[in-house]
C-alpha cells in the first residue's frame, strides 16, 4: 500500500538509510537518498558508484544501507545494477524468485556525466527496469573538488582553480538530463531536495513505469561549494528559483516543467553565497556572470518552448 506523500505519514516509515553514515555535516546527498527511499514503497536493491556517498555510507564494516546494496567501482554503477536486475529477471523466469523488487543506481556527477556515461548509456539502451539517480554536486568531491563536466561555468575547483590567467571553469556544464532524454527512455526528470514533494512524486512515478528511468538531482556540497553547513536546502531552493536547476520531467518524450518560480531570480542569487564563485564578483570577471545568466536564460527559454511544443 502506498504511503501518502505527507510528512506525517512518511515519518512512520523505517529509515532505510540510517544515521551513522559519515557524509560531512550538512551534506545534501544523504537528504536526497533519504527522500528517494521514503518515496519508495517497494522492496528495493541499490547500486552505488564510488564517490562521497559510497565511501561515507559503507565504510569499515558499517553500512548505513538497510536495503541490499552493492558498490563495485566508479564508472559502472549502471552496469552493476543491470547485472543484478538481469539475475532477478532470470530467477523470476525460472521460478526461483517470487518477490517484486525495484532497482536503483546512485552515482555522483563524476560517476555519471563523466566516467560512467558509457555504462549508463548502455544500461538505458538495454532497457533494464531501473532508476538511475545522479546526485549532482558539480565536482569530484570525494577526491577533493576537481572539475567534472557537471561543474558550472566559472566555478573554482582544484583542477580549474580561479587564477589570474584563467578564472575557474571556462566551459559550461554538459546537459546530461537532455542526453538521457535523447535515449528515448520512458522517463527522465530533474529534481531538487528543496522541493521534496516534487522529488518524491517523480520517484513514485518512475517506480510505476517499466523500463529505464533517469533522475538528475541537485545535491549541495558545502565543502566543494564553499558555503555554510546549513544551506543545502536553501541553496538548492535558490538553484530552482533562479532556473539554474529547473524542475521538469520528460515522460515518453513529453516535457513538463513541474515547478515554475513565481518570480525568476537572477542567477547571482545562487552564486553569491558560494565561495566557489567568489572571484566572479571581481570586476574583470563580470563577463562570466553575464555569460552565466545568458546561459541560464537560454536553457530556460528552450525548456519553456519544449513544453509548449506538446
Amino acid at each position: 500500500m502506498a504511503t501518502g506523500l505527507k510528512l506525517k505519514e512518511l515519518s512512520k516509515k523505517e529509515d532505510l538509510f540510517t544515521h551513522g553514515h559519515r557524509m560531512c555535516s550538512g551534506c545534501g546527498a544523504p537528504i536526497v537518498v533519504k527522500m528517494i527511499l521514503l518515496a519508495t514503497d517497494y522492496p528495493v536493491v541499490a547500486s552505488n558508484a564510488t564517490g562521497c556517498l559510497e565511501v561515507s555510507s559503507c565504510i569499515a564494516e558499517y553500512t548505513a544501507w538497510k536495503i541490499p546494496w552493492i558498490h563495485t567501482a566508479f564508472e559502472n554503477a549502471a552496469a552493476t545494477i543491470s547485472g543484478v536486475e538481469t539475475m532477478y529477471r532470470s530467477l523470476k523466469k525460472r521460478g526461483k524468485m517470487d518477490k517484486d523488487i525495484k532497482f536503483i543506481s546512485f552515482g555522483g556527477d563524476g560517476g555519471t556525466y563523466d566516467i560512467g556515461l558509457q555504462s549508463l548509456s548502455g544500461a538505458m539502451e538495454r532497457g533494464h527496469d531501473m532508476i538511475y539517480v545522479c546526485y549532482d554536486n558539480g565536482a569530484y568531491m570525494n577526491t577533493g573538488i576537481q572539475r567534472s563536466s557537471a561543474t558550472p561555468l566559472g566555478a573554482d575547483t582544484t583542477t580549474c582553480p580561479a587564477g589570474i590567467a584563467i578564472p575557474g571553469k571556462i566551459r559550461p556544464r554538459k546537459n546530461l538530463t537532455k542526453i538521457m532524454a535523447a535515449h528515448n527512455i520512458p522517463y527522465v526528470a530533474q529534481a531538487s531536495p528543496s522541493n521534496w514533494m516534487d522529488l518524491m512524486k517523480k520517484v513514485r512515478k518512475a517506480h510505476e513505469i517499466t523500463g529505464p528511468k533517469f533522475i538528475n538531482i541537485l545535491s549541495p556540497c558545502n565543502r566543494g561549494w564553499r558555503s555554510k553547513t546549513n544551506d543545502a536546502i536553501s541553496l538548492s531552493k535558490i538553484g530552482v528559483n533562479t532556473c539554474y536547476w529547473p524542475l521538469y520531467e520528460i515522460e515518453n518524450g513529453v516535457t513538463k516543467i513541474t515547478f515554475k518560480p513565481k518570480e525568476k531570480k537572477p542567477v547571482v542569487d545562487f552564486l553569491k553565497p558560494q565561495g566557489r564563485f567568489k572571484h566572479l564578483f571581481a570586476p574583470e570577471n563580470e563577463w562570466l556572470l553575464t555569460k552565466m545568466q545568458e546561459e541560464v536564460d537560454t536553457e530556460w527559454e528552450k525548456l519553456l518552448k519544449e513544453e509548449q511544443c506538446v
Binding site: A60, T63, I70, V84
Partner: peptide, 14 residues
C-alpha cells in the same frame, strides 16, 4: 544480494 530478508552491503571501503 537478492535475499531481502537479510539485506547485505557488497563493496565497502575498508
Amino acid at each position: 544480494l537478492l535475499d531481502l530478508d537479510k539485506p547485505k552491503s557488497y563493496g565497502p571501503l575498508i
